[in-house]
């Protein structure tokens, strides 16, 4: 049986895809904010996700790019500093990897690859260690320091894809195909869940963030495993759901992207969004 079948029966199709739909709307809206300018002449957000100016007042800069620049030996100007502080503050407060699940356009790609891999029943390939991303993160900063340039940005699929979408640049199709093929054929959730240094950076940033998913109705769990099958970071669920090494029902792992798919696919309504101080639990 496909994951979420019971949830669809219990909650209806929309109920069982609520957070997924909301996330897609959010991801598309972010792109739309950048595209109303070049397409219709209505400028809301200018630039791209690396650095932007919204409504001519709000500067936002990606803190990972900011840190790469620092590592390369350059102190970016005040606008970039303020922008990076706002973005870093937001994700540190609300949830580091919200970026991955709710903003990053590559997520749509890797979610689709994961879905297709599930549907086709592919088991091929070899999954790298989930900590590889931290090594890539360290490596990207070290490489920046060694070469005094943002080396990672030559190949960073995240910025390449979003920049191509917003500026209508060609040439990024190879990146899209590479990521998709890797996630589909080589490693389940390979890019976002194991390699991407940007996700690792945001994960570290949001270690103590407020927004959390709780398995507060974990006693209702019937071990159908649907949440594990759809979760992009399945290792984060067990401690909360099965009290493995913790008593709290909160998913506190920094790798959790707050995507809410576990809430969607659970026919028993075990999971909910809450804040990190909510320790209510039925067991």
């Amino acid at each position: 049986m496909r994951p979420g079948a019971e949830a669809v029966r219990v909650k209806g199709w929309f109920g069982a895809h609520r957070w997924l739909i909301l996330r897609r709307v959010a991801q598309l809206s972010v792109l739309a904010l950048f595209l109303t300018g070049p397409w219709f002449g209505v400028w809301i957000a200018k630039g791209n996700l690396a650095s932007s100016l919204t409504l001519d007042v709000l500067p936002l800069t990606d803190p990972y790019l900011f840190v790469q620049s620092l590592a390369a030996g350059f102190m970016p100007g005040a606008t970039a500093l303020i922008g990076a502080a706002i973005v870093a503050g937001f994700y540190a407060l609300f949830g580091g990897r919200l970026y991955c699940a709710w903003v990053c356009p590559v997520n749509v790609l890797t979610d689709t690859a994961a879905w297709l891999r599930r549907r086709l029943g592919l088991k091929s390939g070899r999954v790298p260690d989930a900590n590889t991303r931290y090594w890539v993160l360290a490596g990207s900063l070290l490489a920046a320091a060694l070469t005094s340039s943002l080396v990672w940005e030559w190949v960073n699929p995240v910025t390449v894809v979003q920049r191509s979408l917003i500026f209508g640049l060609g040439g990024s199709l190879t990146v899209v195909i590479a990521i998709f093929a890797y996630d589909l054929l080589v490693a389940s959730r390979g890019w976002c869940g194991h390699l991407c240094p940007m996700g690792a950076f945001y994960g570290l940033l949001g270690q103590k963030s407020l927004l959390r998913i709780t398995a507060d109705r974990r006693s209702a769990c019937n071990d159908c495993m649907d949440c594990f099958k759809v979760c992009p970071e399945p290792q984060v669920i067990r401690p909360a759901l099965k009290k493995a090494g913790q008593d709290s029902p909160l998913i506190l792992d920094r790798d959790c992207t707050n995507c809410g798919r576990c809430i969607d696919v659970c026919g028993r309504n075990v999971f909910h969004f809450t804040h990190r101080f909510d320790q209510r639990s039925d067991s």
Binding site: N48, A50, F66, S69, R163, F167, G171, S172
Partner: peptide
Amino acid sequence: DDFLSACVRCGLCVRDCPYDTLKLAPFGG
């Protein structure tokens, strides 16, 4: 050399160029 350590490739200069002179380099070029 300094430029490549400082530019975050956001394209704000491209957007504010009134004559569409500036472009962002595509991937793979």
